[in-house]
Design a protein around this nucleic acid. Structure first.
Length: 915
RNA sequence: GGGCGCAUAGCUCAGCCGGUUCAGAGCAUCUGCCUUACAAGCAGAGGGUCGGAGGUUCGAAUCCUUCUGCGCCCACCA
């Protein structure tokens, strides 16, 4: 026997992945089969594999492999996202380490660096996915910034502009002073932090002895104040409305105004109005026709407008102005308080509300479409209740226009050109006029027409400096991966995709927007409204992977185990098992894997992955057992025949239950049912039933060929059923079981479908198993060795004969319970151990005298339980309304329970008398 | 401030369109086994009045109300 007692995952997994890839099983091209399509949520091109990826990619792979084995044309498209802000931030950081500042580089030079970096590190994550067994069609790998996908972005931008759904606006936006770009609302993360509330006195211009006190968290912005606002109904301030106060330190006069927005109970009830640096203040400023004074630079420093502390960073300025205010006697008090601070999702910089000119996409119509898609059930959510969150964001009260421009270089540049003039950009009605087109040449035409100046050349145009939000390219993913804007052959076959598997955290960023884009463009592209609709039929939302303190796993917390280290330890199969079994759709996953934050290595073993690894080893050893048997051309015994029939029935039963679970994406339940089928039914019972006996002299009996073949077939069937979950170990065992011609791999075998199930046999064996367990239990309690053979007697009865007339069953019980004799008796023997199993009564005569007192107690306890049980059933049945109201089947069942219970009581009473 | 969800064994969870698959699974714990497939294992065992309180019903872990404790999403008050 050459097989090791331990299953070697690493070696096996590398071997089979290469084999599958070489065989071309991952690749899909359109044909006459039904397609089954999944698009990977593209990870950041520079990312590394983390637990979240492992989870959702495992789920995707299970679904894809299952579909493939079902004979569908399975296509799993992989790819990466250029992740504009995250990647640019990384490149900037890298350059800084080399002593190069972004501002020293031209756009072209910077992009050269970025592309070089992308080429070097990009796609590592895809290589890592292979270790998990991901059966992606690697020939289809896409990148959101490759030419075709970028052209799609430009096309869509111009299309939307033409449709009047894009506009430019000067708004208060979320500014990231670190990355120096605007952010969408979704990219700002609010967290409660410690802050201070400064109470500052503004003296009245014409009455220097009096003042009004405002409370602010941002004293460094007082130089940008244009008013102080109070509530119109606030008595204590009413007399001040209309008066002028002086901003401390710079003594600029500003009015006191009344506005109902002011919360009278917060702070002092007086609010400083700073339209340039606060969204609400900006709104108030507009209502009252106030000016806007911007005192901050793009990188968060005070500018000339501030008059004082010019050039200081906003946080340094806050410290200094506190001192200045104190010296000036304007600082009444400073109190600590907790407030929500918004930070950039990518750079963690405190977000600065800032007035900037940006491109926005109108969302009202898109939102209605996206809501209707899910409301109508065209797109189904798993779990369903994710609809609530979805609705919350998309309903008309909450949805906001999408700010899609970003002041970055890494990304698709906005296809808008402006006409350069000596006074700056050409304007109409005081507004810059963008010429939006797919190419500069087309924009030039527009410019010539608009201005009536045919002599203009492209040199007179300058392109918008900004790029679009990354999600403005990702929302096209379901169409653009098939180059759907340029040719529709593949789109027509693969679209709509079957299921999207992703975390609920990007429901708004991505899922909702893909639905919008799908409905917006696919009908026209496919020229067929019945096919061109939703981008995917189902959305499976995975939970967030959290640590054992329920914190989201993140690099900054250092609580995420190294995904590759986990695979090295437990194998790809082991990790897949752990991921799958740890949670159902939508539920967060507590992944208990303490790690050493210093070395980032797994210290304690992660229990679920360990369980997966152990399972692989269990199956491996079952293989070793079977392969070690001698096989003879002898007739099949009754025990073996029974065992094969029973295991076949159990397998059919389990297989029949799988499809509904797949349909509902209940993958953990499906895996668990197979786990139990393999471990309990196949290994612990079936293999033990047919295991040839060993003789004391070391030789072993042979197994008949028929049983051996049946066993191999059963094992094979189990491997096929398990393959989508644990592809590597199943493929290995599949090949160890039989010599197979090339191309007959488990991965491409037909997925098992259920045949007829012999439920009677399953029930009979179940009863026998209970009896066997009883004997083992008594052995355990009495300290009788499993090797000591016992005699078992069963009282003849209607059910007992049904049971034991089954050929092979008595012999099977004898083998499994290690009995030297199994007898059917008419009379109740005296002085023996008695137990009930089902409604049959068994006796176990032991060599040693039984402990009568202990037996009396045990039987009495059992008797007491059944008396109580019978009493409760009788009560139920004597209730007229129950008998009348409950379904007949339920009542009948209660009657059977009553009869069985009474029979048990009778037998127990008998047994007590016999002691 | 608006909304959603969760609470079941020591831990992580399943069951939740009412009635023997109804109190379950895995891990952990305890007992006994190095029984020639597997100690990454085998055979057993203990452990929960299904968060509290009401209600509906013949019958509630499951439906309703309410309270308590958690978690999340959105908006964001200086």
């Amino acid at each position: 026997m050459s097989l090791s007692t331990r299953y070697n995952a690493t070696e096996t997994e590398t071997k089979w992945y290469r084999h599958w890839e070489t065989a071309g099983y991952f690749h899909s091209t359109p044909d006459e089969r039904e397609p089954y399509t999944i698009l990977i949520p593209p990870p950041n091109v520079t990312g590394v594999l983390h637990m979240g990826h492992m989870l959702n990619n495992t789920v995707q792979d299970v679904l894809v492999r299952h579909a493939r084995m079902q004979g569908k044309n399975a296509c799993w498209v992989p790819g990466t996202d250029h992740a504009s802000i995250a990647t640019e931030a990384k490149v900037v950081q890298l350059l800084r380490q080399k002593g190069v500042r972004k501002s020293d580089l031209s756009r072209e030079e910077f992009l050269e660096h970025a592309w070089a970096w992308k080429e070097k590190y990009g796609g590592i994550i895809l290589e890592q996915l292979k270790k998990l067994g991901a059966s992606c069609d690697w020939e289809r790998t896409r990148f959101t910034m490759e030419p075709s996908l970028s052209r799609a972005v430009v096309h869509v931008f111009t299309d939307l502009y033409r449709k009047g759904r894009l506009y430019r606006g000067r708004r208060i936006t979320n500014w990231d002073p670190e990355a120096q770009t605007v952010l969408s609302n979704e990219e700002v993360v609010y967290r409660e932090e410690n802050a201070q509330l400064f109470h500052i006195r503004y003296v009245l211009q014409d009455d220097p002895g009096n003042y009004i006190t405002i409370a602010t968290q941002r004293p460094e912005t007082i130089m940008a104040d244009v008013a102080v606002a109070v509530h119109p109904e606030e008595e204590k301030y009413r007399h001040l409305v209309g008066k002028q106060v002086l901003i401390p330190l710079i003594n600029r006069a500003i009015p006191i105004i009344a506005d109902a927005y002011v919360d009278r109970s917060f702070g002092t009830g007086a609010l400083k109005i700073t339209p340039a640096h606060d969204q609400n203040d900006h709104a108030i400023g507009q209502r009252h026709g106030l000016p806007v004074i911007d005192i901050l630079t793009a990188d968060g420093k005070l500018n000339d407008q501030a008059q004082i502390l010019v050039g200081q960073d906003r946080f340094a300025a806050r410290k200094q102005i506190r001192r200045l205010l104190e010296e000036a006697g304007c600082l009444e008090k400073v109190e600590d308080y907790r407030t929500n601070i918004g930070r950039s999702e990518r750079t963690d910089a405190v977000v600065e509300p800032r007035l900037t000119q940006q491109w926005f996409l109108r969302m009202d119509e898109f939102a209605r479409t996206a809501l209707e898609a899910v409301r109508s059930g065209e797109v189904r959510f798993f779990p369903e209740n994710m609809w609530n969150m979805y609705y919350q964001w998309l309903n008309e009260d909450n949805v906001r226009d999408w700010c899609i421009s970003r002041q970055l270089w890494w990304g698709q540049r906005i296809p808008a050109w402006y006409l350069r003039t000596t006074e700056g950009r050409w304007t109409r009605d005081g507004e810059e006029v963008p010429f939006v087109a797919e190419h500069a040449a087309a924009a030039l035409e527009q410019a010539r027409v608009a201005t009536g100046r045919p002599e203009l050349t492209e040199a007179d145009l300058e392109q918008d400096e900004d790029v679009v939000d990354t999600w403005f390219s990702s929302w096209l993913w379901p169409i653009s991966v098939f180059d759907g804007f340029e040719r529709q052959d593949e789109l027509a076959y693969y679209y709509p995709t079957n299921v999207l598997v992703t975390g609920w955290d990007i429901m708004f960023f991505w899922v909702a927007r893909m639905i919008m884009a799908g409905y917006e463009w696919s009908p026209a592209l496919l020229g067929n409204a019945s096919k061109g609709t939703m981008p995917f039929r189902d959305v499976y939302f995975t939970g967030m992977v959290r640590d054992n303190k329920r914190r989201k796993m993140s690099k900054s917390l250092g609580n995420s185990p190294d995904a590759l280290a986990l695979i090295d330890t437990y194998g790809g199969d082991g990790v897949r098992f752990g991921m799958l079994l740890s949670g159902s759709a939508g539920n967060d996953i507590i992944f208990d894997a303490p790690i050493d934050s210093a070395t980032n290595t797994v210290l304690n073993e992660s229990k679920l992955c360990e369980q997966g690894r152990n399972f692989c080893n269990k199956m491996w050893n079952a293989l070793r057992l079977i392969k070690g048997w001698q096989v003879a051309d002898s007739p099949q015994g009754t025990v073996e025949a029974l065992a094969v029939a029973w295991m076949s029935a159990r397998t059919e039963q389990a297989v029949a239950g799988l499809q509904p679970l797949f349909d509902q994406y209940r993958l953990s339940d499906a895996l668990l049912s197979l786990y139990q089928l393999v471990w309990d039914d196949f290994c612990s019972w079936y293999l033990e039933m047919i295991k040839p006996a060993y003789r004391p002299d070391g030789t072993a009996d042979a197994l008949d060929r028929q049983t051996y073949e049946a066993t191999v077939s059963l094992f094979e069937r189990l491997m096929a059923a398990l393959h989508p979950f644990l592809p590597f170990v199943t493929e290995e065992i599949w090949h160890q079981l039989r010599e197979r011609p090339a191309g007959q791999d488990c991965m491409v075998a037909p997925y098992p479908t259920a045949g007829p199930v012999d439920l009677t046999l399953v029930r009979l064996v179940e009863v026998a198993r209970q009896a066997i367990s009883e004997v083992r239990n008594i052995r355990s309690n009495k300290g009788i060795s499993p090797r000591e053979a016992l005699t078992l007697q069963v009282r003849e009865s209607a059910t007992a004969s049904q049971l034991f007339d089954q050929p092979g069953l008595q012999a099977m019980i004898s083998k499994m319970a290690n009995l030297d004799a199994f007898e059917r008796v008419q009379e109740e023997p005296q002085g023996v151990l008695t137990f009930l199993s089902g409604t049959d009564k068994y006796f176990l005569p032991l060599a040693t005298a039984i402990d009568t007192a202990a037996e009396t107690e045990r039987l009495s306890k059992e008797l007491e339980y059944y008396r109580g049980f019978v009493a409760s059933v009788e009560k139920k049945l004597s209730n007229e309304r129950f008998v009348q109201g409950a379904p007949a089947a339920v009542v009948d069942n209660e009657r059977k329970k009553l009869a069985d219970g009474k029979e048990k009581i009778r037998m127990l009473e008998e047994a007590l008398q016999g002691l």
